[in-house]
Amino acid sequence: MRTMSVINPRRARTRYAGIALSKTTGMVFVLPALILFAIFILYPLLTALSYSFFDWTGILRGDFSGLNNYVTLFTTLPYSEQLPNAFMHNVVLFIGAMLFQNTIGLGLATLLHRVRRFKRFFQTMYTLPYLVSPLVVGYLWSLMLSPLFGPVNSILRGIGLGDLAQPWLGNPQTAIWVVVFVTAWQWVGFPVLLYGAALGGIPEEIDEAASLDGASSWQRFRDITFPMLIPAIGTVSVLTFIGAMEAFAIPYALGGSQGSPAGATDVLSLMFYRTAFESGSTNAIGTSSAIATLLFLFIFGVSILITWLLSRAERRLY
């Protein structure tokens, strides 16, 4: 004979009430973060977007101009020359960070994962630079690279490589690569920490089993470790992209607001700063807001694309 279970109405109401209470409690804890996000992130973004659709006379808003401020950026000098130049330098910063900063960070994290002694010491040493203000780091490197009294050129001359000594920040051919190097030097500890945490989450039994099957260290890293690091690589890649496109402090410290020499270190954030505060244009608010909006839309769109591509790659591996 089939028996039917009878649901206790009081128990069901108690359970549903507990679920509703837990959701309410969660919203209470999330609400402060949402309020701060709305005030300091969402509101400024929407304000900049609205400003970009109007003409401005100083701080007085004029008539609705539609996309005129955006058209000005691509058709009117000096914006039409500065915009692609600054954008390409941001791209160079991102590529340089991916090639040097993140590759070296992954290598150091892998070595530290295998070395037990002094592991915490080296992790601390690698992460110390990014705890310092980027402006301070930039100014210190500008002093060290000085052609007059900088220790870098002095060391090169002292070891017989005087032909390599040059005004690193005064040469348009080398200035942007100095920015790439200093940025990578400061932030290399960030991927070291993230990759180190990801490596610590990989079960050692998998690596040991592959070793017993005769796999070499490189084969184990290529076929086991690296695929399991894809989520961490995705996170580091997106954050690196955002940081490279928003770069301001180090380029400003090394090349000033004009991106010296001759715009060789100019980036989009510097262009926004000059347009908003140094251009002297009566429509500075409208034009600079258009730059900020374009920068945000590009960062947001490419970040979503990178996340989607890496998630697809992760699903294929598993």
Results as ranks from 00 to 15, higher is better:
3 T>M: 12
3 T>K: 15
5 S>H: 15
7 I>K: 13
10 R>C: 03
11 R>H: 14
16 Y>W: 07
22 S>D: 12
22 S>N: 14
23 K>I: 10
24 T>G: 15
25 T>V: 10
25 T>C: 11
32 P>F: 02
32 P>M: 03
37 F>T: 08
39 I>G: 05
40 F>T: 06
42 L>F: 13
45 L>E: 00
45 L>P: 01
47 T>H: 01
54 F>I: 01
57 T>Y: 15
61 R>P: 02
63 D>N: 12
64 F>N: 00
69 N>Y: 07
73 L>A: 09
75 T>I: 02
75 T>L: 08
76 T>Y: 06
77 L>C: 00
78 P>S: 11
80 S>K: 15
81 E>D: 11
85 N>Y: 03
87 F>P: 02
87 F>Y: 05
87 F>M: 12
89 H>F: 09
95 I>G: 09
103 T>H: 08
107 G>I: 14
110 T>P: 11
111 L>V: 14
113 H>V: 14
127 T>Y: 14
128 L>K: 11
128 L>A: 13
130 Y>M: 13
131 L>G: 06
133 S>P: 09
139 Y>A: 03
140 L>Y: 11
141 W>N: 10
143 L>M: 13
149 F>C: 07
150 G>Y: 07
152 V>P: 03
156 L>H: 01
158 G>A: 15
164 L>H: 05
171 N>H: 04
176 I>P: 14
179 V>A: 09
181 F>D: 05
182 V>I: 09
182 V>G: 08
185 W>H: 13
186 Q>M: 11
192 V>K: 02
192 V>A: 01
198 A>I: 12
203 P>K: 10
204 E>S: 14
206 I>H: 08
208 E>S: 00
210 A>K: 10
211 S>Q: 05
211 S>P: 05
212 L>F: 04
212 L>S: 06
216 S>V: 08
221 F>N: 13
225 T>G: 10
227 P>A: 11
235 T>L: 14
235 T>F: 14
242 I>N: 00
243 G>M: 07
243 G>Q: 04
250 I>G: 01
250 I>C: 07
252 Y>F: 14
252 Y>E: 00
252 Y>L: 10
253 A>C: 02
253 A>Q: 00
254 L>K: 07
257 S>Q: 07
257 S>N: 09
264 A>D: 01
264 A>C: 01
265 T>Q: 07
267 V>W: 04
271 M>S: 03
274 R>E: 13
274 R>K: 05
278 E>I: 04
278 E>N: 11
278 E>M: 12
279 S>P: 05
280 G>K: 07
281 S>R: 15
282 T>R: 08
283 N>Q: 11
284 A>C: 02
286 G>M: 04
286 G>Y: 04
291 I>M: 09
292 A>N: 03
299 I>L: 09
301 G>E: 12
306 I>E: 11
307 T>D: 07
308 W>F: 15
310 L>C: 04
314 E>S: 07
317 L>P: 09
